[in-house]
Design a protein around this nucleic acid. Structure first.
Length: 203
DNA sequence: AAGTAACA
DNA sequence: TTGT
């Protein structure tokens, strides 16, 4: 993997095609092991609505959401500890995060053709000086970036398999979300859909 | 509201 | 239909 000059999206850094096809396949293999140990689940928001993405996590902590609210937990909702973060994901982190610390959570979101993610901030972590690194795999996604508060103008960009987005510094708390998945745009996942990994330092 | 609908 |  060779780091090229990133594109700038309101302070977010977008490394297009950072992860090559062979490494993408390798990473997906690693994720299969994670999902086998910690099955995907449909989270429910604090208002009781089901999210359209299915998710699980790897690392010391996983992100969970239920009637109690959002938080990081050391166990899967089924009570089991989270599996280790795949090595390739850690390599990507070392290349682009710009921090000495290693991620404590790798949130794995699976989007089928109709799944979306509403505009939100990542603010359940203790230290906002630590960046969030997002890895796209599989079908293309229409990603939207907003502002530090809700509302205002937004910008959208299509994210492709192998793209890596770093949300750090002044862009760490920008609202963002996923509006649409382009079904059939990638051959990486045999049954289609998109996987997004977000690596974070939690504590 | 990590959701949804409504409105321009 | 698209953007907020």
């Amino acid at each position: 993997m060779q780091v090229q000059q990133p594109l700038d999206l309101r302070g977010m850094k977008l490394f297009r095609g950072l992860i090559g096809p062979e490494e993408q396949r390798h990473l997906v293999e690693g994720l299969r092991d994670v999902v086998r140990a910690a099955p995907l689940f449909h989270p429910v928001t604090s208002s009781g609505k089901q999210m359209s993405v299915r998710m699980t996590s790897a690392g010391r902590f996983g992100w969970v959401s239920d009637r109690q609210g959002y938080r990081y937990s050391e166990t899967h909702p089924a009570g089991i500890p989270w599996p280790a973060i795949p090595e390739i994901a850690l390599e990507v982190w070392r290349m682009v995060s710009g921090t000495e610390r290693m991620p404590e959570c790798c949130l794995i979101n699976f989007y089928d053709a109709g799944a979306k993610m509403g505009m939100h901030q990542d603010r359940d972590e203790a230290d906002f000086d630590q960046p969030v690194v997002s890895i796209s795999l599989g079908d293309e996604a229409l990603f939207r970036v907003g502002n530090l508060t809700r509302g205002g103008r937004t910008e959208s960009v299509w994210l492709s398999s192998g793209d890596v987005l770093v949300m750090g510094a002044e862009a760490r708390l920008l609202y963002h979300g996923v509006d649409r998945i382009k079904a059939g745009s990638s051959m990486l996942l045999p049954r289609g859909g998109r996987i997004n990994l977000t690596l974070r330092v939690v504590t």
